[in-house]
Design a protein around this nucleic acid. Structure first.
Lengths: 205, 205
DNA sequence: GTGGTTCTTGCGGAAATCCACAATGGCGGC
DNA sequence: GCCGCCATTGTGGATTTCCGCAAGAACCAC
């Protein structure tokens, strides 16, 4: 996976340079783009870190870029910069899930602090995500029948009831059950329930 | 439990009256206070609905009141009103968990929309909370020994292993196990795992 | 001391789970 | 046609769970 870094998108070269210099001086790596369109071209889902987007840019705005990225499944924490912000815009931006909204000119230390917070949040999110996607992959290896049986197991049904419901022999249910445990990497129905409870509760957030 | 309503705190009588009238005209019930201190005196944990707080008041500010209420476990969604807001204040307020931050003068329809959203959020939160506290109550009825055994069950251990670990007879474990299920209102270890997984994942939010 | 709660244990049987060994039939790809 | 994957089933036995019946010991409260 890519290491965490700061992705900086601003059409003002002076700001880009100043920010890159600032971050570099605190040993934070960054990469810069001069337009939303340019970043969107380079973006790929393996990127990890935080975004710093200028709100008002020629062409696509920072907010539009943000929405595009979210639509593509990007969940990186995002700090917006603006030269002409107002309260309603700030509120709207944060309610859409932005990590922060900062007016230019900004205080260097404060910005760096926000960036570090964002990077840390991203870090923990990635860990959770890794667990989630592993579970996801394992779920994907289950056959249709196995998923049906698993649903019954999670509903707390006994093998006998499952057999009855799916119109198959108990022995078959047992085979499925064993294979589900094996594929999902658990050793009991309890572990399975915990794995999937955690999985769905994080996923629906 | 109290029905949902809007709790309005503002030291400006004109605003209070205007808001109360506005809400009433949309069939939304509200109650008003003229200071943070006055509300804090009347506050009790059974109140449910949403808060509308003026940011700047003589004496305790809206933000201070908000923090006080949070400290007391109040989780009502809160809309802040401000006559002299700026972007950093708006950002700080939202990042502390406010539901919205609205400048005066406000648009009537918009405000009502926010209030309705807040009330709806509160509604669903209350449902989740009710489930949580029921589980909490049930957990409280477990004896120490039962909690120990439950921990083992959730760790996926077999009765035999539990008996070994706690240095008691298998039969004793079985008794505890049955009583745990009975007290927690579940009928299998799987249901127990699901109940507690959901419980802790909502609780740590 | 009586009564209630909790923790403990044993016996014995019904029911369920787990598992190795063994096997059949369908389906799609090479 | 052969191979692999999937779903299916059976037998039989070891292991585990579930539960009623019965009961002893510790502890605390009234």
């Amino acid at each position: 996976m890519s290491p965490s870094l700061v992705y900086l998108v601003d059409d003002d070269a002076a700001i880009r340079d100043a920010l890159a210099w600032l971050l570099r001086s605190r040993s934070i790596q960054s990469r810069s783009w001069d337009s939303a369109e340019a970043f969107l071209r380079d973006y790929d889902a393996t990127m990890s870190g935080c975004l710093i987007l200028d709100m008002r840019m020629v062409g696509m705005t920072g907010m539009e870029l943000y929405e595009q990225l979210r639509a593509r499944g990007c969940a990186m924490p995002t700090i917006f910069l603006t030269g002409h912000g107002d309260v309603p815009l700030a509120v709207k931006t944060l309610k859409r899930g932005a990590f922060d909204f900062i007016e230019k000119p900004f205080n260097d230390n404060e910005l760096v602090d926000r960036v570090l917070e964002a990077l840390q949040q991203e870090e923990s999110r990635r860990w959770r995500d890794a667990d989630r996607s592993q579970t996801e992959e394992r779920l994907a290896t289950l056959t249709e029948r196995e998923k049906e049986v698993m649903a019954c197991i999670l509903a707390g049904k006994l093998n006998k009831m499952i057999a009855d419901e799916l119109q198959i022999a108990m022995r078959t249910v047992e085979v499925h059950r064993a294979r589900i445990f094996e594929k999902m990497g658990v050793r009991s129905a309890v572990e399975l329930a915990q794995l999937l409870s955690a999985h769905s509760s994080n996923g629906s957030r």
